[in-house]
Design a protein around this nucleic acid. Structure first.
Lengths: 128, 128
DNA sequence: CTTTGTTGATTACGTTTGTAATCAATACTG
DNA sequence: CAGTATTGATTACAAACGTAATCAACAAAG
């Protein structure tokens, strides 16, 4: 479970969206956003395999890659660790920063409200 | 404005808390949490200076270091970039993840509520 | 004045990362 | 079958990183 680098993460994202996928599909998909050489993407795929973040099955001449780690849980662990390092574990300061710098849109506010009320309902039922 | 590494960040944090500070003060402060060799901390200080994240003034035989970048703005930029990379710019999914994995405490909820109502008030006044 | 300790500067060194190029195996083409 | 194209594997290589050790300059101690 080594660390996954920023660039590796972007490759993973593609795989989470569409899985399994051949190197070329991945490269193409990435090309819509990034300017990476195919070789570069291949290297990243290799490294992800080594890190056991993804795997592949052989399909003729190609490999079909798929993630071994779940997006959900990776995100959770990763964001927890970031928030821990930067905000001693609390999300609210992060959100506060966003608010302060006008990075919050109505959508976010609505979402946050939902999260809050869900959380509160859960508390109730916990207390049963 | 090169990137600041994780370890460098921890040194910066100390400086943000107490500024200016001599290398030894910093080392001591870090020692309460980390097991870093003094030499290591010195290296990090040096690198931070090179990256123009901190500077120092000479005080006799020692240097007194102080941050050149503001915590506030560093945090804002950094968290924006993280949220951008990982959640396409929205904080709410991050918070949702936290909620889902029981990483939200009552305090956080209260804080979030405050943030929300502040945001809403601001909207009103914007609309005036 | 010589020795010793302190403090920053310089150097070290293996690993990870970003970014590819080259090699090798195999499949397609003429 | 020989040459070319494709695809993954291996190798490359500089910069950044984590983690120090050594060097140099100067001050304190004897």
């Amino acid at each position: 479970m080594t660390e996954i680098s920023k660039t590796e993460f972007e490759v993973l994202e593609v795989l989470w969206q569409k899985q399994p996928a051949s190197a070329n599909e991945i490269i193409e998909s990435l090309n819509q956003v990034k300017e990476w050489h195919d070789k570069t993407v291949k290297t990243l795929l290799n490294r992800l395999v080594k890190k056991q973040a993804i795997a592949f099955e052989v399909d003729q001449r190609r490999y079909l890659y798929y993630p071994l780690i779940e997006r959900e849980s990776y995100m959770a662990k990763e964001s927890k660790s970031i928030v821990e390092r930067m905000f001693s574990g609390r999300v609210s300061p992060l959100v506060a920063g966003f608010a302060k710098h006008n990075q919050l849109a109505k959508d976010d506010i609505d979402e946050l409200k939902k999260i809050i009320s869900a959380w509160e309902h859960e508390q109730e039922s916990d207390n049963d």
